[in-house]
Amino acid sequence: MEPRHYIEFQDVSFQYPNSEDWALKGVSFHIKPNEWVAIIGHNGSGKSTIAKLMNGLLSPQQGTIHVQELPINQETIWDVRKKVGMVFQNPDNQFVGTTVIDDVAFGLENHGIPREDMQKRISYSLKAVNMEEYVNHEPHNLSGGQKQRVAIASVLAVEPELIILDEATAMLDPKGRNSIMNTVHQVRQDRDVSVVTITHDLNEVLFADRVIVMNEGNVWFEGTPREVFQKHDELQAIGLDTPFVTQLSRHLNKLGISLHKEPLTHKDLMDELWTLHSTR
């Protein structure tokens, strides 16, 4: 039977060496199998620390982290890293191969995957990110968005159960960002995989099933994107922003236009406005 929680943080605290403050203070949450969770928060709120704890790049001073009911520790760390793949912010810092195909193969060689299986996985994962035409290209000649797509392919090839995108679109232009979000969305149509996106981009948050809001090393709120953006004023108080549609809805509400659902997209808001208009 599949476990209820894919990843579970129980009362996790973490402090960086030479730092007086705790980066995380007694943090508990879980991520379900096949769930897409966005983690947002101000700079220094502990978002990236969580990502690094999830695949054992850091280990907590207090509390426990389970991946599929397996506690992360020195003995399990290599098994955990097979399950949890990570894509980082800077597209230029995550290439090891001299060609796209070498780069995707690198992770598989590390995990000792047999050659025939490797070939299948490489072509599958490059196809999934729409980069199959670039197998023999040199990574440094690709655009930022293409590089990040290859990074995702390298992670996918290892067949992880969870992919973490740690501000993976921050250095990309809007076109590159969209291509990454669509790629992840597409991959999830084909196979079961949990996704954690750590981001400042509000449009990325809308893709998620659930959002965890971090503030000063604590979990400040958990809920659907709709529930999170309902807390518009409080979010601004902790240094976060809300999408255009949320802000406009707030102003309209103040003017007596009562919107019942919290609209998230242009279409949501327009539909509600039109309904109000036609029933007048």
Partner: peptide
């Protein structure tokens, strides 16, 4: 500003069909 836009939008929405 967002305030000013909301006012114009509210006026049109409240205008109703009739």
């Amino acid at each position: 500003s967002m305030d000013e836009l909301a006012e114009v939008i509210a006026r049109i929405v409240e205008g109703g069909h009739q």
